[in-house]
Amino acid sequence: MLVQELLNAVLIGGIYAAIGIGFSLVYGVMNLLNLVHGAIIMLAGYVTYSLFARLGLDPFLSIPVTMGAFFVVGYGLQRFVINRILTASVFMSLILTYGIDLVIVNIVLLVWKTDLLAVTPSYAGASWAIGGLVVSKIRVAIFVVSAALTALMYVFLDGTRTGRAIRAAALDKEAAELVGVDTPGIYAVTYGLSSALAAAAGSMLATIYTLTPTLDGIYLGKAFVVAVLGGLGNITGAAVGGLVLSFAESLGVVVLGPSYQEIIGFGIFLVVLILRPYGLVGRRFYAEI
C-alpha cells in the first residue's frame, strides 16, 4: 500500500507545482510577493465552474480560455496598477496585492455567493484500478498538463526573445534596460504569464477541490511553500518544491498520523527558509530558470 501512497504523493505534487510555478516566476522576475496569486487560482476555478455549468465546457478545455483571459487581466493589472508601486517599499506592494486579493474575493462573493460549488465532468472521481492500485484519472490529467506547462514555460524562457528578456530583467533590471528591454512591459508580460499559469491551475483544481471563497488563502499558502522549497524565482524548482511538499504531507500522515499532514511540510519549509533560502534546487546565480 506504500506504493499507493507514493503514487498519490507524486500526483498531488503535480498539483502543488501548478499552484506554485507562477508565484515563483513573479517573485523571481520582479521581487514581488504576489498575494493575488491564490485569488487568481480561485477566481479561475469559479470561471471554469460557470463555463461548465452554463455552457457545458469541459474544465480541461476551458484551460486555454481561462489562461487567455487571465493573461490579459494579469497583464493589465501589472501594467496599470502594480508597476506603479514596484519601486516603493515591500510593505506597499504587500498592501496593494492584499487589497487586490480582497477585491477578487468580494467579486467572487458577489457573483457566485458563498455556495459550495464543484465542477463535476462525467469522469470526475473516476479511477483506473491497476493491480490493486487506484489511480485517479483527473489527477493524472492534472499532472500531465502541469508537467507540460512547466516544460513549455522552461522552453519559452530559455529559447525565445521575450523569454530571454524576462530572464534578463530578473537578473539585472538596469542592465536589461540598457540593452533595450522595456522592463515595465516585460513585467506586465511576466505577470500575465503568471496569471495564466495560475488560471490553468485554477481550472484544473476546480475538478478536485470544492470551490469556496476562502480558497485564495489556501492556494497562496501552498504557492508560497512550494516556491520557497524550490527556490523563489526558480521555475524548475517549483516542480521539485511541489513534489517535496506533497511527499512531506503524505509522510506526515503515514508516519505521525493524520493530524500531522501539514506539520512536516511546514517544518521542511522553515528549515529550508533558514538554511537554504535559495531553495532545495541549487543555483549558482540568481534567477536561473
Binding site: 530572464r167 538596469e174 542592465a175 534596460e177 522595456d182 530558470i289
Partner: peptide, 27 residues
C-alpha cells in the same frame, strides 16, 4: 527611457559589467 535610447544607437557598458550572470555568454 533607457530601453529606447539604446535603440537609437547609444550603448552604455556600465561600471561593474552588469552581465546577466545566470545566462550564458552567447545569451
Amino acid at each position: 527611457p533607457a530601453s529606447r535610447v539604446v535603440a537609437r544607437g547609444l550603448a552604455l557598458v556600465p561600471e561593474g559589467r552588469r552581465l546577466f550572470a545566470g545566462m550564458t555568454v552567447a545569451e
